[in-house]
């Protein structure tokens, strides 16, 4: 039952903006940021950003980063880390609680220099996400899943267009769809994906689980049973949504 005891520390994939820094004291940086933020203020409000230091020769002192943080916070941006930093830069960055980021170097160039498109780049957090599997092909099952059978889809979704019997177990790192009656167990997000969901055409499960949170049938309100339902992790609570509602 390792699935049930998923660790408190789990991986996540986030989209972050990258701001390319040349000279931290260059007044044009302030102006460019102002223009960019003014274009879509809602989008940039309180947004976490990564500082790309590839073209930055300065920024080796803690004071440099303090100044940069003040500048960014005036534009309501929250710096969370740096990438392409030299050893000296990294040491100073750590002193002001900026984390090292790797990857996405090749895309980071245009940020903060070209006026359009907005300086938004994907900086996937490469480290600290061992439990999130890469996407793979979904698996389609067309025969009834009988008692005693276990199906596991590593890194993907599971789609069953047949009934799933009591005593059968469906496990997927992604979503689980059952276009029949779900009477067995369904364990979605088995590798920790908290956005995974379970969908059942007719919902009578023994147990449902998403990212380690689970409900046994005893704990499921009877109003959800014998009809279509989906299971999602909402505000850290395993929630059963009647039918195909979107929330």
């Amino acid at each position: 039952m390792t699935v049930m005891m998923a660790s408190r520390v789990q991986g996540g994939i986030f989209t972050l903006m990258v701001v390319r820094i040349g000279d931290p004291y260059d007044p044009t940086l302030n102006r460019e940021l102002e223009e960019q933020v003014a274009r879509s203020p809602g989008f940039f409000a309180e947004a976490p950003v990564v500082l790309d230091l590839k073209d930055c020769l300065g920024c080796t002192a803690v004071a440099d980063f303090t100044a940069l943080k003040q500048l960014l916070s005036r534009h309501r941006l929250i710096p969370v880390g740096v990438q392409n930093a030299s050893t000296l830069q990294m040491r100073a960055a750590k002193a002001v609680d900026l984390a090292p980021f790797n990857g996405a170097q090749s895309h980071a160039r245009r940020a903060a220099v070209e006026p359009a498109p907005p300086a938004v780049e994907r900086a996937p957090r490469a480290p600290a996400e061992p439990r999130v599997a890469a996407a793979s092909r979904p698996r389609l099952v067309t025969q009834p899943v009988r008692s005693g059978t276990q199906i596991y889809v590593r890194g993907g979704d599971l789609i069953v267009v047949a009934p799933v019997s009591a005593g059968a177990e469906l496990i997927a790192d992604g979503h689980i769809h059952v276009y029949g009656t779900l009477r067995g167990r369904a364990i979605a997000g088995a590798a920790g994906d908290r956005d995974a969901r379970i969908f059942a055409h007719r919902f009578e499960p023994e147990l449902v689980s998403v990212a380690g949170r689970y409900l046994v049938s005893d704990a499921i309100e009877p109003e959800h049973l014998n009809r279509e339902a989906q299971v999602a992790l909402i505000d850290d609570r395993l929630t059963i949504l009647p039918g195909w509602s979107r929330s």
Partner: peptide, 13 residues
């Protein structure tokens, strides 16, 4: 019924 279900699964595998 549940045991039968299990046997049907074994027939298929």
């Amino acid at each position: 019924v549940r045991d039968s279900d299990r046997i049907i699964g074994l027939l298929a595998s």
